[in-house]
Design a protein around this nucleic acid. Structure first.
Lengths: 165, 165
DNA sequence: TGAATCACTTGCAACATGCAAGCGAAATGC
DNA sequence: GCATTTCGCTTGCATGTTGCAAGTGATTCA
């Protein structure tokens, strides 16, 4: 019951095993939302700005749960709602996401301000331990704000004072 | 011409942008094969052991090329063959793959021997600089051997001396 | 008590993937 | 120098996955 065997036993390479779990467009985004934005409910993921369909979202949450990356617990303040929460295994993905973030900020057009990325790059350990601390203490404050798409870099120097907090 | 605009402009989050490129089952495996196993030709990827279909492989190689993660050059020794090679942008994915490897080795059943992983974990910088060196000098020696799937941990102590070599 | 909101589920069309077979060009064998 | 093999793909087709819109039952709010 634990393992869902007979699914896709491709190879024993750790990278391959990982991709069997979240080798798709959405799973890591959900993990990111939980980890750095403090999202917990279905609604929050749905409105996270990427436009995931509700059936896909439900499917991914179920699969991530089966993979032991997140768990669910009833929301105390609202009987209709459920809180999704990363497990130890899930929060341990933080270094992967951090490196992914840094890579993309350097090599792709993203909405992440260079200064923020540079600071994270030079303080990897601090960023990770702060991420871990907030997870452990159930501190729901986001570590990073949602990044806007920087459509045109023309004359836009507005959104920027949005530093580390 | 550079950017293939009009495709999927989901959000400006670096993680999301990354997943638009290799958010699927195969792309990162190809990058892994190039990076740590020194694979260069279509045939090598095809026989890498994960069982990718040739049409998918061709498609992913094309997309990774369009994304600037790899380039092609004619193989000098064989006019039929083509050598795929990571770009700077591609080799810069090394930290992401390393963290992914470490994560999976800790949290999933993989074929990676613990000793090897532990050593990589404690020498991240050395592993990365060696990876980079081999890429730069076109040294095709693999950094890691293909890991076997450890099917049943029952009484099987055979395949194990497969250490760093 | 009725409307709104919660986390989903369902139906269906469009797209992506997996599999086997085939194709032109270059290399190899005889 | 000609047949065979090997190279990197492409094609056709069945199946699986995704995206979209609408709907459902349970809970909460007004």
């Amino acid at each position: 019951m634990a393992g869902k065997e007979g699914k896709t036993p491709r190879s024993g390479c750790p990278v391959s095993v990982s991709l069997e779990i979240f080798g798709d467009r959405w799973s890591l985004l959900i993990v990111r939302d939980m980890m750095v934005r403090g999202y917990r409910t279905f609604r929050e993921f749905q409105n996270a700005g990427e436009g995931i369909a509700t059936n896909i979202l439900a499917d991914r949450l179920r699969k991530l749960g089966e993979a032991g990356i997140l768990t669910t617990e009833p929301a105390e303040e609202d009987g209709r709602s459920i809180h999704y929460r990363l497990t130890e295994k899930g929060i341990a993905l933080a270094p992967v996401l951090l490196e992914l973030l840094i890579w993309a900020a350097h090599h792709e057009e993203t909405g992440a301000p260079c200064a923020v990325i540079e600071q994270m790059e030079q303080n990897r350990a601090a960023v990770l331990s702060e991420t871990y601390r907030r997870w452990k203490e159930r501190d729901p404050r986001p570590i990073l704000p949602p990044f806007q798409r920087q459509d045109k870099p023309t004359t836009e120097k507005s959104r920027k004072g949005n530093d580390t907090r």
